[in-house]
Design a protein around this nucleic acid. Structure first.
Lengths: 242, 242
DNA sequence: CGAGCCGTTGAGGGGATTCAAGCTCAGTGG
DNA sequence: CCACTGAGCTTGAATCCCCTCAACGGCTCG
């Protein structure tokens, strides 16, 4: 919960200090804000934690809040008319989640935590207010929309094309962008891989096992992998040159 | 080319009148503009015609113009690292094309006319200028970004999933949104269908022929189809309930 | 009239799915 | 303590759907 100051102080609000020191501030939406802007927002922003598998919001709901992802990975998924789940995009550190509420639109997808996640919960009206003052923020928002669009199109072009082996290799490549401090990457469950790449979980399992045998990856635990980067590059080259 | 007036007149500029009367004005980006706004923009906007197969711009290029599609269908495509062409989205009447230039970003995809197309060519700086005056325009822009994002995600979920028959049926369903005045829809070439649905052109051809035999569609000419709507709905139902 | 593009159709092969069984591991309760 | 259970992962065998390769026909253009 946020804290509401009862008296005027000269030092900035503690949450404002926290925002100013935030590890993802430079990459986040509010990176464009100055001290005064931070002072304005701090009181309304809550910090949220989410366990893997927990949903942040559901498609179709008209929400009034959006989120900045400080830590972890969140996936966007939707259920097709045929009834199967399809993961259409991932969000990582610094990404904005649920920006459609700024347009008074319902959430477009389910948003579900893939890993333990930490987020800032931001009321939509807060961003509305800041936008009218701050053109840089508007531009920042548009940039995020464009990035999300390009992500989605790249996903379609690169992760939904070609043989299964190539698709899983490309997924591993993409996941390397979210490498953790200790060099491990998040390895999705087999049925999640299936939902991302349009494969059955058996096929996903076969390929991950195969990569293990080939020495391309190793699994320190069930949810993480270490990837042999150069070997992955080579394997991708082989797939693409044919 | 645009015409620059040499003397001040009381009647609105002819192009401003054309804009005000534009058939897609209500759905277009500048639907949010008033008379004064239209007067401001008219002189810089050119009208463009494009034949099927002609490209409007290429991915990676840093352009300075964006477009409103007045008539026809334009596709966005990109070449995967493996080297095959993949169509990732379609634009129809009233859609905005190339808005990434507003962010000083290179075009994200190739844009190619699918049908004869008419567009308005809009210099990016023009929109920049209007945005600072006109909050409604900013909101309209954001809405378009969000719509494009949702289109792309829906494409991924609905057109890249399931057996080939279902994918082509869903494509026909989607194309019905662009039905022409006489009730015909644009029917892509077989290899275009392949590039949209990740199929070979042979498979696309087989399915279109099959639909013809089933009476689901008829082809008045090679590039157009008439669809039996209820039959299509039934066929989709059958596909989805299994 | 031949060349080239586009569409159609067939035959055969291959890669992913389907169906099925067995495995590990964490949690539960006797 | 350990059987029991269920969820997730792995692996095998058979099937099927789509791709590949190939031939052919219609159409437009030079």
């Amino acid at each position: 919960m946020s804290i509401i100051p009862l008296y005027r102080v000269d030092t900035p609000h503690p949450q404002a200090q926290a925002c100013a020191a935030c590890s993802v501030r430079g990459q986040s939406l509010f990176g464009a804000l100055d001290r005064a802007g931070l002072d304005y927002i701090h009181a309304s922003i809550d910090s949220i934690r989410l366990q893997p598998g927990k949903t942040l919001f559901e498609a179709g709901v008209r929400g009034a809040v959006l989120y900045t992802l400080r830590e972890g990975i969140v996936r966007f998924e939707r259920v097709t008319e045929r009834g199967d789940r399809r993961i259409v995009r991932l969000a990582g550190r610094g990404d904005l989640i649920g920006q459609e509420v700024l347009l008074r639109r319902p959430y477009a997808d389910d948003a579900v935590a893939c890993t333990p996640a930490q987020l800032c919960r931001i009321p939509a009206h807060l961003v509305d207010g800041l936008c009218s003052q701050n053109p840089a923020l508007v531009r920042e928002l548009m940039l995020r929309w464009q990035r999300a669009l390009e992500d989605s199109e790249a996903w379609l072009a690169e992760l939904a094309t070609g043989p299964a082996r190539r698709r899983v290799l490309r997924l591993l490549h993409k996941l390397m962008a979210h490498t953790e401090a200790d060099g491990r990457i998040w390895l999705p469950q087999r049925d999640e891989i299936g939902a991302m790449l349009n494969l059955t979980f058996e096929t996903a399992s076969r390929l991950i096992s195969q990569f293990k045998r080939e020495g391309l990856i190793e699994l320190p635990d069930l949810r993480h992998a270490r990837i042999d980067g150069p070997a992955l590059q080579r394997a991708l080259r082989v797939e693409d040159e044919r």
